[in-house]
Design a protein around this nucleic acid. Structure first.
Lengths: 343, 343
DNA sequence: TTGTAGGCGTTATCAT
DNA sequence: ATGATAACGCCTACAA
């Protein structure tokens, strides 16, 4: 009889008058136990307030029922919905989410990844495909399935579920070109530590190149994702390289910042300046006249990452690469440039 | 020699030519081992790519180095920054965050709580102080420290770190009264499953009552937090009980929705209608002319919850209740009601 | 259907 | 400083 401390399965077994093995089965493999016995064990368990010891089970079972996720600032509103969906989907399958976050720092990401592996994560979810070789090495060694999310892995070496940021960026830049814009500026995200931001910028270049146009260096400003930085970047662009008629922003908050800077300067949007964002956060649809942007199915990404991981753990196989649609949503911040007649 | 599978500590010990115990010490209690020995163990460990088995350690140590958090939609932008701060702070102390989320459902919350306890969370973070008696029972039985966040616990029975939503709401309502408003409407959050929303609504009533005013039932509309619902609620209020000159919204997204509805109807803000929110999300400061709201130190809440928990795990004691300041931030959406001269 | 007993990978207690 | 050897709490062949 354990003097203090929480009750162990042995206590439950003793009180129910059965063996340890039977008590274990009664709780987790009900079908292998006679109904009456099961009830006795359940009763004893309830009476004692028995709580299974996860670590012990994990050790014996070799399964932690835990999935790890290494995310950059869950801070970004769009990551939040993804995290929520991920957690919900996992919970529905009896799994729990072990979450580690870092500030777009690849070394911190590596450290976090190692910790999650040590903690026994049965699967891992990372963001993007820009990781240290060491991180990939850790992933490979651990032997558990993992999913790269948001971006799709072009190399085809890793399982991934996300979208083509470059492709979507090309389409939304094309939308501007179609409207007649030729002088385009970009407020890009931080491309050094963020492959999504880099791909989005590259997409703009691609679209322009297809029309024989270039993107002058002074027409590009990089800034970390935030409304405030968007304003600042826009101001900088207007100063150092005025004359453009449209701005492509790395994400919606940046786009809104740019928009606000225009308001402050009396630049009419979209009449005198077109603005496009990326992500389609909730406000994009509501702020008048509506932000033209790329819709990113963030919750879907979290949900699918979970499902794919669970499927693989169940021995099923899933397509290595899953590309989700990311449609351009045309709203009110885009129009033909000044001096060009409407179609 | 383990044929397959990842190497165990025994393998490291054998290769390093030391006992299991020494290998263990070399890795986690370096000071108890001679430098030379330690190097041999480290080398063997590196060569084998040894990864400590978390569950086994947890079982032997009785410490999981894990903190659990049960959150409503991490989806809400303001919860996100809190989660991020929490995870960062825990990581810095060698702890990992086990995250479970639910949709403002107390039963789901209970279930999630149980799971986290089973998983061996050494401490728990919950949101608000509206929980099922069963949940409190689980918390009490587990014996580990826990913190209620966002709200402060009025009963003083539980450790909590947050703010007085009621108090802050009184202050911002007072701000409207000071401006001369007497006809006030409220777009409240869902008060049934959210004590913060309920307290914020109660605060408005308190402030009005102090001036001998009442809040007519048709001047209150409840809606789940979102911009779209804010618009809808505002439309409803304008229809069913027109004549008010100010709106108190349950949070910023709702306030923005109300604002947008005004824009759509040509109601000038703040000249014809004052609007206040709650939370102070990033956009509140940037969208012209700026949303008057209550600043909620969300990241600070996450950070402090982590620190308090870690301190308590270290045997230190912390003040049971920690109330954070939540100042009213006056921006551009509030002004005297029509017909009242500026002070 | 139920019981017995060995093992999961580490740490901790005692010796040495 | 290092080495045996019990725990840690549970699961699961294998037997009965």
């Amino acid at each position: 009889m354990s003097a203090i401390g929480s009750p162990r399965l042995a206590d439950v077994a003793r009180i129910a008058g059965v063996s340890l093995a039977t008590a274990s089965r009664a709780l987790f493999q009900p079908l292998l136990v006679r109904e009456g016995t099961r009830q006795r064990v359940l009763a004893a368990s309830a009476m004692l307030g028995y709580v299974p010891h996860g670590a012990a089970r994990a050790l014996a079972t070799r399964r932690s029922h835990t999935i790890g996720a290494v995310f950059p600032p869950v801070d970004n509103p769009i990551f939040a919905s993804s995290t929520h969906a991920l957690a919900q989907e996992l919970a529905a399958a009896g799994y729990t989410l072990l979450l580690a976050s870092h500030d777009y720092d690849l070394h911190a990401e590596l450290a976090a990844t190692k910790v999650l592996v040590e903690r026994g994560a049965e699967g891992l979810v990372l963001v993007g495909n820009d990781h240290l070789p060491e991180t990939y090495a850790v992933l490979a060694r651990m032997g558990a399935p993992y999913e790269l999310t948001w971006s799709i892995d072009p190399s085809g070496l890793h399982h991934s579920v996300g979208l083509s940021h470059r492709g979507a960026s090309i389409r939304i830049a094309q939308h501007l070109l179609d409207l007649g814009h030729r002088q385009i500026a970009v407020v890009a995200g931080d491309t050094r530590h963020n492959d999504r931001a880099a791909e989005r910028l590259a997409g703009v270049r691609d679209a322009l190149a297809a029309h024989g146009l270039e993107l002058p260096p002074d027409r590009v400003v990089e800034a970390k994702f935030s409304v405030a930085n968007g304003r600042e970047a826009m101001a900088k662009l207007l100063e150092q390289a005025p004359g453009f008629t449209a701005v492509v922003a790395g994400n919606d908050p940046l786009a809104m910042g740019a928009w606000f800077e225009c308001q402050a300067r009396g630049i009419a949007v979209p009449r005198a300046m077109s603005i496009v964002g990326f992500d389609d956060i909730e406000l994009a649809a509501h702020i008048a006249p509506g932000l033209t942007t790329v819709h990113v199915p963030s919750a879907e990404i979290g949900r699918l990452a979970a499902r794919r991981l669970l499927a693989r753990l169940a021995g099923q196989s899933v397509p290595r690469m899953m590309e989700l649609p990311a449609p351009v949503v045309v709203r009110g911040t885009t129009a033909p440039p000044p001096g060009v007649a409407n179609a």
